[in-house]
Design a protein around this nucleic acid. Structure first.
Lengths: 174, 174, 174, 174
DNA sequence: AATGAATGAGGATTCATTCAT
DNA sequence: GATGAATGAATCCTCATTCAT
């Protein structure tokens, strides 16, 4: 792939991420092209289908989340991860679980990364051993969606996460 | 309004709720008409705009939630409310916070009803007094969205809510 | 179906027949709409797909040919049929065997009608009994295509058919 | 012209002939480039317009036919020529009279070559002297088109040509 | 000369909305 | 009021053609 094509591919993804985050998956592909300053044909050359573009965005977002989760460690990594996810979603810089797009395998990698954070937190005794990965993922995606569409301010983010964090910590011993 | 018109209005809302829950807000109005066994013109006579139809659905859904919340009382009413909301969302029988539709004022009534449940729970000492209404609403909508798009099974619903419930109860006194 | 819809359906078919005969199957559906004085949506309401429109034209053309063949009889019906087919094709008023369109069953009816003419001609002794239906159909479609694309004048039509007719008559007895 | 350019030009023509014979003139130029293993730009350097490419193919096909007709002689050359033309068309190895492409002058050479075969056949007394070149050409192109689109098998080819040949021979003297 | 990315006009199709019946 | 046909703007996608590398 030529250098300019490489640059355009990235430009399209960046622009599309903004556009779809702002207007939803129903935004037109032409709008993406316009904002990227490219002709519509160029967008379709890189992503032959609108769905391909949406999927590519989702995969890149997930890859970023995986990378971020992988970069964390220690007992409180899981909490940190929750925090940044919500903060980003609230700023619409990320779009998780866009409807109707198949991300399949890409999601598995996130499961693995978050699972690792969960194990570390439980090993350190800061998260209840009863808690399992599926509900952690469910809470992550829920709260991501909520922040995305609800436009929570920093205070609300913190207070909402406080409830979840309180629910994750181990119960006091009798 | 004639009796048949009254009946058609309700029929349209019922059908539209099913259709939009199943296919998202992007489903066509014609599909709603077809499934209702009505002509497209009839749908538009009742709801001059697709947006009007979506808004009407949202309002009716909220009204139902308000009614349900209002029907609950006692220390554990809030928990019950969380439970039924998630269960319904998981079955796609309800659609909360549909994107791009203005529900404005209607939301306030739900705030009031849930606020009342929160007060009762806190008075009875089963919910932490630090917790305030905004984060409760944020958790409700988040978890509703999550269950809606995630298709949680009964077990996952319960485990996810268990974390939130654990976060809502008062901390042990030192 | 309403009266106006019925009229429009026929109008679309008539117009499309002209347009596709003149410009080939690659002509745009919008061109058909424009020449019919209708909005593009109306054409697609009647024929949800361009292919549906092409198929409908083919079927109607074949039905007409079947009707015409069925209206003929007597020893020379087959020759008459050849003659009118070629004359029409030369005037581009008919399009036979448009590429890529599935006409399937509709073709069978024409086989039957022409087969009947062949039997009559052979019974009367004006067509060689060695000749069978497949080659008669092959000659018909060939000569139809040739006249359609070649734009034969009346004289050429006659001279070309003269050769074929001479080939169809029984050989002289020894 | 460089040697590789010469080779590419031939390669493009060969590939295009296959592609257009298989998919019709609506096949994309890009498909031709892909199957030739060349970049699209190379195809357009050799043939600045899709139409130029189509025309070049047609000319080459005609040239081949002329050459073949020119290679034949004797009383039955005309019949042989009919036979090979139909056989090739049935195998889609040749495309005659592609719609919408101007071949103009190139056609004249074929007229001359076939005219010569006709004269020889008539001189030898195996073809009716009443028959003239235009109808022979008309029959050739018709039957070529028919075989091309009809996919005739060997048996049908023979039987169809038998009718035409019977029409070409001189009538029995009284 | 070859490559292959970019362009943008054109074409099929959908769908909210209007309006004649 | 109900019906469903007509409208036409909007959208996805294709492809001939141009041009920078």
């Amino acid at each position: 792939m030529r250098a300019d094509a490489q640059r355009n591919r990235a430009l399209i993804l960046d622009t599309a991420e903004l556009v779809f985050a702002a207007e939803g998956a129903a935004a037109s592909t032409e709008e993406v092209a316009r904002r990227a300053g490219l002709a519509i044909g160029t967008v379709f050359r890189h992503f032959p289908t609108k769905d391909d573009l949406l999927t590519a965005i989702m995969k890149r977002l997930l890859a970023r989340l995986v990378e971020r989760a992988g970069g964390l460690s220690g007992p409180y990594g899981l909490f940190t991860f929750f925090g940044t996810l919500v903060a980003e979603a609230a700023e619409k810089r990320t779009v998780v679980a866009m409807a109707g797009v198949d991300i399949g395998a890409a999601m598995g990698a996130l499961d693995d990364a978050v699972g690792e954070l969960l194990v570390q937190a439980q090993s350190a005794g800061v998260v209840n051993r009863e808690v399992r990965l599926p509900e952690v993922m469910a809470l992550l995606t829920s709260v991501g969606q909520g922040a995305l569409h609800g436009g929570w301010d920093a205070d609300l983010q913190q207070r909402t996460l406080a409830v979840i964090f309180a629910g994750l910590v181990p119960p006091p011993r009798a």
